[in-house]
């Protein structure tokens, strides 16, 4: 099962890890308040997608994020997907924060009949930056949309607020199933909305241990799969730009009666898994099983 969530794409792996050798926790990035340019993206594009051409999304994928990152450590990002006969199914979505030390926040892949139409997560945003989503449709074409997020003011930093708490509950998961918002005809569709929460510091690993004077290794969730029965809903290859306590809210085509299974693996080789019966009963909580 975990074969599916390893970092298969070496290019993504390179981008994820490229900056870990740096001694500076947060390299100084240009923070011009002027009109944003895509300079960073232009140099980054080839590393992630090689020479493949990338089209404008034209509504196939849309992205919403606050204009200003209120809390630099927790910036909510919403993705909506339009899957119809003309555009074809979306196979994967790559989420990128241009100016972060590790720009590729995550690569999500969706199961063939998962029918994911909406995905929300939370990101660290270090500086004035584009946040972009690149969707890959079944025909192999890439479709990009982006939004510009201004850095937060004041003393907000993209760092953990309560480090000890995050470590004490490492791997604890919660799954929440939301009741259908609509009634009547719309409720006949099987779309179900869920929220998955995992306790994890998702640590950049760039802090220095005060005793040893060595940099603490990066420690983050690098792989995640959500499935129902034997059916893949989605998988994620993640990096440190995903906020601490990774959080995913998504809508998909559920099959009644089959359990939801979640498996996650972090950079220390710890594996976390859990499963829940699919019931629209609000909050479901579990103890971590490592």
């Amino acid at each position: 099962m975990f074969a599916t969530i390893e970092l298969r794409n070496p290019l993504v792996a390179i981008v994820l890890f490229a900056f870990f050798g740096s001694a500076l926790p947060f390299p100084v990035w240009a923070q011009n308040a002027g009109p944003p340019e895509s300079t960073t993206w232009n140099s980054l594009k080839g590393d992630v997608f090689e020479q493949k051409s990338i089209e404008a999304a034209n509504g196939i994928v849309t992205i919403d994020a606050p204009k200003r990152a209120e809390d630099a450590a927790i910036v909510p990002v919403d993705l909506h997907f339009k899957t119809d006969a003309t555009s074809g199914r979306i196979k994967a979505v790559t989420l990128i924060v241009d100016e972060n030390p590790s720009p590729v926040a995550a690569v999500f892949k969706f199961g063939p009949d998962a029918g994911v139409t909406h995905l929300a997560t939370r990101l660290r945003v270090n500086a004035y930056s584009y946040v972009r989503a690149i969707a890959e449709t079944e025909d192999g074409k890439l479709h990009m949309t982006e939004t510009y997020v201004k850095a937060s003011g004041g003393c907000s930093a993209p760092a953990m607020k309560n480090t000890d708490e995050a470590l004490a509950n490492l791997g604890k998961m919660k799954l929440r199933v939301f009741p259908a918002k609509t009634t009547g005809l719309a409720s006949m569709t099987r779309a179900t909305e869920m929220q998955l929460m995992i306790r994890h510091p998702n640590n950049s690993g760039l802090q220095m241990d005060q005793v040893t004077r060595y940099y603490i290794p990066a420690h983050f969730i690098q792989g995640l799969t959500v499935s129902q029965g034997d059916r893949l809903i989605m998988s994620m290859e993640g990096g440190i730009s995903i906020s601490e306590d990774p959080n995913f809210r998504f809508e998909f085509d559920a099959k009644p009666g089959e359990d939801i299974k979640v498996e996650a693996a972090d950079t220390e080789g710890k594996k976390f898994r859990d499963e829940w019966p699919l019931e629209s009963s609000g909050l479901q909580e579990s103890k971590p099983r490592i």
């Binding site: 926790p25 947060f26 100084v28 923070q31 930093a157 480090t163 802090q207 005060q210």
Partner: peptide
Amino acid sequence: HNLPRALESRGSYYLQSYHDA
């Protein structure tokens, strides 16, 4: 006792992020 760790993970960011203001 947590201050060194907190500054280690935020210090460079603070120096950078306050520069404009």
